[in-house]
Amino acid sequence: MDIKQIQELIRFVAKSGVNEVAIEQEDFKITIKTNQGPTVVHATVPAAAPVYATPVAAPAEEAPAAPASAPAAPAADTSKYITIKSPMIGTFYRSAAPEKPLFVNVGDEIKPGDVLCIIEAMKLFNEIEAEVSGRIVKILVDNASPVEYDQPLFLVEPI
């Protein structure tokens, strides 16, 4: 792994919300740990000193949305829908600015790569993109509301 690949891995871990990632290959071992603070990286390469990366905040680039099966609600059958969940902790916004149009509405068709919302985390605005094709059935979070990691944001009917 070169330094550029390590930096990309740090960015990925920072925006994914996981606390620790360890990768071991024949001649290389790297562990990345986060605790809601700076990201610390320890890498070991034979005949080389450990690499310590500088603290990294969640990047402003697009963060992937994580599709999963929707939990069944007692009042309606949602098992046929895909739930798009928050990939991070932050504040949920339905548009880029108050005067700008909403990214998506109920009934809109989406495809992979479409921006669904923005989540602000530590003064960085992260566009959340669709990873599935479908139709928005329900928006589960109010605009400008705080969201938790893995919190359901949208219900999508697959097309």
Rank of each mutant, 00 (worst) to 15 (best):
A66T: 00
P67A: 08
P67G: 10
P67S: 09
A68T: 00
A68W: 09
S69W: 08
S69M: 08
S69V: 15
A72I: 12
P74K: 14
P74W: 12
A76P: 00
A76L: 15
D77P: 04
D77Q: 09
T78L: 13
T78M: 07
T78E: 10
S79H: 14
S79A: 12
K80S: 11
Y81P: 02
Y81T: 08
I82N: 03
I82H: 03
T83M: 15
T83Q: 15
T83S: 15
I84T: 06
K85C: 10
K85W: 13
S86I: 13
S86H: 12
P87Q: 10
I89N: 15
I89H: 15
I89C: 15
G90L: 06
T91C: 06
F92E: 01
Y93F: 13
Y93E: 06
Y93R: 14
R94F: 05
S95P: 01
A96R: 06
A96H: 03
A97F: 00
A97R: 08
A97Q: 09
A97P: 02
K100N: 07
P101V: 02
P101K: 05
F103H: 06
V104R: 01
N105Y: 01
N105P: 02
V106M: 00
G107Q: 09
G107A: 05
G107S: 08
G107Y: 08
G107V: 00
G107L: 05
E109N: 10
E109Y: 04
I110N: 04
I110F: 00
I110G: 06
K111E: 11
K111V: 13
P112Q: 04
G113F: 02
G113Q: 07
D114Q: 04
V115R: 03
V115C: 12
V115T: 15
L116D: 06
I118T: 07
I118N: 01
I119D: 02
A121E: 02
A121R: 01
M122N: 05
K123W: 13
K123H: 08
K123E: 05
L124K: 06
L124N: 12
F125S: 13
F125Y: 11
N126M: 04
E127V: 09
I128F: 07
I128W: 04
E129M: 05
E129A: 10
E131W: 01
V132W: 07
G134H: 12
R135E: 11
I136H: 00
I136G: 00
I136M: 00
V137P: 00
V137D: 01
K138V: 09
K138P: 01
I139E: 02
L140E: 04
L140Q: 03
V141K: 11
N143A: 03
A144S: 13
A144G: 02
S145I: 14
P146S: 14
P146G: 10
V147C: 06
